[in-house]
């Protein structure tokens, strides 16, 4: 069942990051209550972190020696080798911007900006279409969440009480 598999870009780096994270987590878990007893608060976190370290080592071994067993079950429906494309990084940046500005602009304004920018960027149609689409989806979202589900939407500090 073992088949040589092409390594995905950045796979080893990601596995190493996971391993380092697990080791730090194990060290932090040890810090909770050390080895003072077997039913203390820190035991289970230590066991979980230890399982992460151990499986992390196996993952790295599999990557380095290419003995990753190919499963019959198709995993991701989109097997491609793109990991960090410009489009993805831009979108993540847009989401960060959206989340960072929401406390100031309020949900409605921040969402309008985010929707417009991402429609314009991802769809690349006429600006007017993007604006119209933003307006349409925003009123749909407002109707659905604020009126139907009665969810409280984050308000901004910039335009007090309005949005």
């Amino acid at each position: 069942m073992s088949v040589q598999r092409e390594r995905r870009p950045g796979e080893l780096a990601f596995a190493l990051i996971l391993l380092i994270f697990s080791i730090v987590a194990l060290w932090q878990a040890y810090g909770i209550s050390g080895f003072k007893g077997l039913s203390t608060a820190g035991v289970f976190p230590m066991l979980a972190a230890a399982a992460m370290v151990l499986s992390g080592l196996f993952i790295i071994k599999d990557i380095l020696f290419g003995r990753s067993s190919e499963r019959k079950i198709p995993q991701s429906l989109e097997v491609d080798h793109k990991v960090l494309t410009v489009r993805l990084v831009t979108m993540i940046a847009l989401v960060i911007l959206y989340i960072a500005t929401m406390p100031y602009l309020g949900f409605m304004v921040a969402s309008a900006g985010f929707l417009f920018l991402s429609f314009a960027y991802l769809w690349r149609k006429n600006i007017l279409i993007s604006i119209a689409l933003t307006g349409l989806t925003l009123s749909l979202i407002y109707g659905l969440f604020r009126i139907l589900f009665q969810v409280v939407l984050p308000k901004g500090s910039l335009i007090q009480g309005l949005f």
Partner: peptide, 16 residues
């Protein structure tokens, strides 16, 4: 999952 160790890692991460 793709491999057992990845499954264990994911589960343990969740527990953590």
């Amino acid at each position: 999952g793709e491999s057992f160790s990845k499954g264990v890692f994911a589960g343990a991460l969740g527990v953590l």
